[in-house]
Design a binder for these strands. Structure first.
Length: 84
DNA sequence: TTTGAGCGC
Protein backbone atom coordinates (compact mmCIF):
# COMPACT_ATOMS: atom_id res chain seq x y z
CA UNK A 1 0.00 0.00 0.00
CA UNK A 2 1.09 3.59 -0.45
CA UNK A 3 0.82 6.28 2.14
CA UNK A 4 0.34 9.89 1.28
CA UNK A 5 1.88 12.37 3.70
CA UNK A 6 0.98 15.99 3.29
CA UNK A 7 1.75 19.26 5.02
CA UNK A 8 5.38 18.39 5.41
CA UNK A 9 7.97 20.90 6.45
CA UNK A 10 10.53 21.81 3.85
CA UNK A 11 13.19 20.67 6.28
CA UNK A 12 11.94 17.12 6.24
CA UNK A 13 14.07 14.68 4.31
CA UNK A 14 13.47 11.22 3.00
CA UNK A 15 15.53 9.84 5.83
CA UNK A 16 13.38 11.57 8.40
CA UNK A 17 10.35 10.00 6.84
CA UNK A 18 11.97 6.60 6.71
CA UNK A 19 12.79 6.81 10.39
CA UNK A 20 9.23 7.53 11.35
CA UNK A 21 7.47 5.22 8.96
CA UNK A 22 9.76 2.27 9.55
CA UNK A 23 8.15 2.00 12.98
CA UNK A 24 4.98 0.90 11.30
CA UNK A 25 6.27 -1.44 8.65
CA UNK A 26 8.81 -2.05 5.98
CA UNK A 27 9.29 0.79 3.56
CA UNK A 28 9.39 -0.34 -0.01
CA UNK A 29 9.67 2.98 -1.74
CA UNK A 30 9.82 6.61 -0.85
CA UNK A 31 8.92 9.49 -3.08
CA UNK A 32 9.38 13.15 -2.25
CA UNK A 33 8.03 15.13 -5.17
CA UNK A 34 9.70 18.41 -5.88
CA UNK A 35 8.50 21.15 -8.10
CA UNK A 36 10.05 20.51 -11.46
CA UNK A 37 10.73 24.16 -12.17
CA UNK A 38 11.74 25.53 -8.80
CA UNK A 39 13.29 22.45 -7.28
CA UNK A 40 11.44 23.05 -4.04
CA UNK A 41 9.68 20.34 -2.17
CA UNK A 42 6.00 20.30 -2.76
CA UNK A 43 5.26 19.67 0.87
CA UNK A 44 4.13 16.10 0.69
CA UNK A 45 5.47 12.62 0.23
CA UNK A 46 4.52 9.12 -0.79
CA UNK A 47 5.67 6.09 1.06
CA UNK A 48 5.02 2.65 -0.26
CA UNK A 49 5.04 0.08 2.49
CA UNK A 50 4.78 -3.65 2.83
CA UNK A 51 1.26 -4.74 3.54
CA UNK A 52 1.73 -6.00 7.05
CA UNK A 53 -1.36 -4.45 8.53
CA UNK A 54 0.35 -1.67 10.40
CA UNK A 55 -0.07 1.04 7.82
CA UNK A 56 -3.42 1.99 9.23
CA UNK A 57 -1.82 2.37 12.63
CA UNK A 58 0.67 4.69 11.01
CA UNK A 59 -2.15 6.73 9.55
CA UNK A 60 -3.94 6.90 12.87
CA UNK A 61 -0.81 7.85 14.73
CA UNK A 62 0.68 10.28 12.29
CA UNK A 63 -2.31 11.97 10.77
CA UNK A 64 -2.74 15.23 12.61
CA UNK A 65 0.45 14.70 14.56
CA UNK A 66 2.86 17.57 14.86
CA UNK A 67 6.18 17.00 13.15
CA UNK A 68 8.89 19.54 12.47
CA UNK A 69 6.45 22.16 13.64
CA UNK A 70 3.70 21.19 11.24
CA UNK A 71 0.63 19.04 11.52
CA UNK A 72 0.99 16.01 9.34
CA UNK A 73 -1.74 14.84 7.05
CA UNK A 74 -1.49 11.16 6.43
CA UNK A 75 -3.72 9.19 4.15
CA UNK A 76 -3.84 6.27 1.86
CA UNK A 77 -2.46 7.55 -1.42
CA UNK A 78 -4.49 7.66 -4.54
CA UNK A 79 -3.00 6.12 -7.64
CA UNK A 80 -1.05 8.50 -9.73
CA UNK A 81 -2.46 9.56 -13.03
CA UNK A 82 -0.82 7.49 -15.65
CA UNK A 83 -0.24 8.82 -19.07
CA UNK A 84 0.40 5.70 -21.00
C1' DT B 1 3.25 24.02 1.38
C1' DT B 2 -2.28 18.80 1.00
C1' DT B 3 -1.92 13.16 -4.34
C1' DG B 4 4.44 11.57 -7.31
C1' DA B 5 6.83 12.07 -14.12
C1' DG B 6 8.28 14.49 -17.99
C1' DC B 7 8.18 18.48 -20.82
C1' DG B 8 8.36 17.67 -27.48
C1' DC B 9 4.57 19.91 -31.58
Amino acid sequence: MTLYIGNLSYQVTDQDIREVLSEYGQIQRLNLPVDRETGRMRGFAFVEMSDDGQEDAAIDDLNGAEWMGRSLKVNRAKPRDSRS
